[in-house]
Computed example of a mutant assay.
Amino acid sequence: MPNILVGEVKAGSKIIKDVITPLGGTLFTKGKILLPRDLDILQAFLIGQVEIEGDQGEASSDGAKTTAKQASPKAGAIINESMLAKTNSPLHDEYDKMLTLIKNSYRSVTAASLPIFELRSQLETLIGYLKDYHVLKFTPRTLKYEDYNYHNAVLSALTSYKIAQWCGYPQKDWMQIAFAGLLHDIGNAKVDSSLLQKPESLNNSEIEEVRRHTTYGYQLLRNVTAINEGVRLAALQHHEKIDGSGYPLKLDGSQIHFYAKVVAVADIFHAMTLERAYRRAQSPYLVLEQILTESFGKLDPVIVQTFIQKSTDLFNGTRIKLSDGRHGEIIFTDRANPTRPMVKIEETIVNLMLERELYIQEIIA
């Protein structure tokens, strides 16, 4: 059938040729059934015409049935995601148990050995609910800035496990990488807590003491069984940088264990999105953009790119809150700019790639 003007296309129509944006990206692929919101997307991208299967009147009638079938699972998914956003899930139950266990471990590690087998058992139970964990969506039940280290540990464990999967590392390393995330900051147990909670800037000697948590961590883990050397090196090396500008040993990229490279990304993300004594929690989308900037010469670029692409892989219709307080839903994500999707707010479409002063503050469901 000849091309149809976008203004004349009806919901339920089936596209028979890929729709390409003016910049050369694929907006919709051949075979897609157009939903009502898709018509807004076509207009927002200034698409003039599309090729539609068969007579449009018939296509709309038949397509409406198909659309209903397709929309139903998506609607169900929205309900499920919304339920997961609440804090009454088994994932939250096991998270809280892990949080209590790691908190007790921090408090006792300088006087007694780590309860490593208990930690492993609870970590395995928690990982069992990983399918319900979304890096950008998950929020613990209670967040107190004085518990930052413990939340960072558990969240870094979950995120490091995810990254290991996404990057295609051998399965035998997944649990050990989760351990690396869980224990990477264990050396903070030997650092004066007043320095870790200090709201003012640290002086040079205080900075040096805080930085020693990396060597303290390696020392505390040196004789612990049930973890491998990669876990110990992650505690030592997670603040090293690819260009050799990190600490404590100023190693370059080839000298840094890949566990430490994974944990570094997870640690930075959660450090910036959790409330701290000296800083408010930041938008996860802004943090991803900062991590992307940081990746040039600092973090492993493959791990960073994979983390950003996978964590922002949300379905259209995901409800969000913008930085100006308005609520809307994601209607299209350009994979070349995954942190700046198009958002529909009532009858207005906001293109975050163009409106750079705005950003997604929070994912609601």
Rank of each mutant, 00 (worst) to 15 (best):
296 F>H: 15
109 V>A: 12
323 S>V: 03
57 G>R: 13
32 K>E: 12
351 N>M: 09
133 Y>C: 04
84 L>A: 04
90 P>N: 09
293 T>S: 13
355 E>A: 14
94 E>I: 09
70 Q>D: 02
361 Q>R: 12
52 I>S: 00
246 G>Q: 04
40 D>A: 08
161 Y>F: 15
188 N>A: 06
326 R>L: 10
251 L>A: 05
176 Q>D: 10
43 Q>I: 04
91 L>F: 10
16 I>Q: 02
51 E>Y: 07
103 K>P: 01
168 G>H: 12
212 R>A: 12
182 L>C: 09
33 I>Y: 14
233 L>W: 03
282 Q>Y: 07
334 D>R: 08
280 R>I: 07
230 G>V: 06
117 F>A: 09
223 N>E: 09
143 L>M: 13
355 E>P: 00
336 A>D: 12
157 A>Q: 08
115 P>G: 03
12 G>D: 01
346 E>R: 12
296 F>K: 15
291 I>E: 01
59 A>M: 14
42 L>V: 08
104 N>E: 15
14 K>A: 05
218 Y>V: 00
178 A>K: 04
100 T>C: 02
49 Q>R: 14
346 E>C: 01
130 L>E: 12
236 L>F: 12
12 G>R: 01
147 D>M: 11
120 R>H: 09
233 L>H: 05
321 K>T: 08
9 V>Q: 09
16 I>H: 02
72 S>C: 03
12 G>P: 07
356 R>M: 04
86 K>E: 10
268 I>D: 04
38 D>H: 15
122 Q>Y: 04
109 V>W: 02
358 L>D: 05
212 R>Y: 09
162 K>Y: 04
20 I>D: 02
39 L>T: 04
138 F>L: 11
